[in-house]
Design a binder for these strands. Structure first.
Lengths: 201, 201
DNA sequence: CGTCAATTTGAAGAGGAATTCAAAAACTGA
DNA sequence: TCAGTTTTTGAATTCCTCTTCAAATTGACG
């Protein structure tokens, strides 16, 4: 029998297991047994904690988003120079490679968000927070005279997040010419034009 | 009994039915019965034409991509002015609204492309063709002296397609502030910076 | 009109997945 | 240690989907 755990611990385990199962089988392809297998439990045990699988999936997606976003904020918090902040943030929004689990998970939401309002709201809220994050960097840089913005900071921020999203899809789809490095350069090309700064640090 | 049709006609019907079914249930959630219902047939009839459902799904995705791309080329062919071409092409890459079926279908591929090589290849080839399309517009405009490009035409083209993709997701996810018009303006903001042209025509 | 081949149906069966639940196992606290 | 509670299992049941296939229907062609 699998090691017995407290309610809270087990729920956390299951959220992790669901994340992996979603990545492996797709948000619309996950089955109870997939989650159970990832967690090393039986279907019955999963059902004991989450009588409704779809609730667990939403929690897993939510947790994945939060983790992704907080990780970015944490990296940001270690820096002060706006140029460095911008460059590091662009990199932290891209997958490390085609298998990056955080981005793979987020990508699963893209299609589902059009069908499922809950996923739409989740994805939209992540987008908006990332836009705010970039906007803060851009505004600070502009205030310090380091950046000369070519448009509203919100416009540039929206485009930066949009570019990250899109290249995340390209990389996980294994575009033969666009990997993490190339994608970063492409986004930086825009960032340079938008900030009037050559972004070398 | 549903009207009997020739092999070719029925296969086209089924591809259309599969497109609708994918949009409704997700690429990993579609079932034989969904496709049959969309086509007004029984599961047996679907299986008679496509013994393997996944083959039908690939064909449906392929057909959807081709339709989307050819539609854009057709709009492009009616124009000569590079500025007009660029503006019209940007608009034609965005969904008409959250329910736009062509974009909804493409969005379904995003997550699946990370798991399924065939979908990855399909999506990558669409991306590359769209990049070429933009590149031709940019190069022509540059040659005519209308555009003063801020970077490689391939870099700008890649970013333009990436922005379209990403805003397609935002719009189908029903972002409350970003609709087709707003997305077009956001992309145009980048296009202006990248071409040095204010893109009024 | 009648024959033939192609298409479609509907029912039957095989295989899975979700759900339920009684029993077992594992932890808790006295 | 032991009683009580929580967690997990595993088997039984139900539900649903895919698959198969014989029979029915349709349309084409002579």
């Amino acid at each position: 029998m699998a090691q017995r755990k407290s309610r809270d611990d087990r729920r956390l385990d299951l959220i992790e297991a669901a994340r992996r199962a979603i990545i492996r089988h797709g948000i619309d392809g996950v089955q109870l047994s997939h989650v159970a297998e990832e967690a090393g439990l039986t279907s019955g045990a999963v059902l004991y904690h989450y009588p409704d699988l779809s609730e667990l999936l939403v929690e897993a997606q939510h947790a994945g988003m939060e983790r992704f976003y907080e990780q970015r904020l944490r990296q940001l918090a270690t820096l002060t120079d706006p140029v460095e902040k911008l460059v590091v943030t662009i990199r932290s929004g891209l997958p490390t490679g085609p298998l990056d689990p955080d981005v793979r998970l987020l990508n699963e939401l893209g299609g589902a968000a059009g069908r499922n309002r809950v996923y739409g709201v989740l994805l939209t809220s992540l987008y908006d927070r990332q836009v705010s994050m970039y906007q803060a960097i851009l505004d600070t840089g502009a205030a310090l005279g380091v950046f000369r913005l070519s448009a509203d900071s919100v416009t540039i921020a929206r485009n930066l997040v949009a570019l990250e999203d899109a290249y995340g899809y390209r990389i996980t789809a294994r575009h033969p010419l666009i990997g993490p490095g190339e994608a970063a350069e492409l986004i930086l090309s825009y960032a340079r034009a938008a900030t009037g700064n050559d972004l070398n640090h």
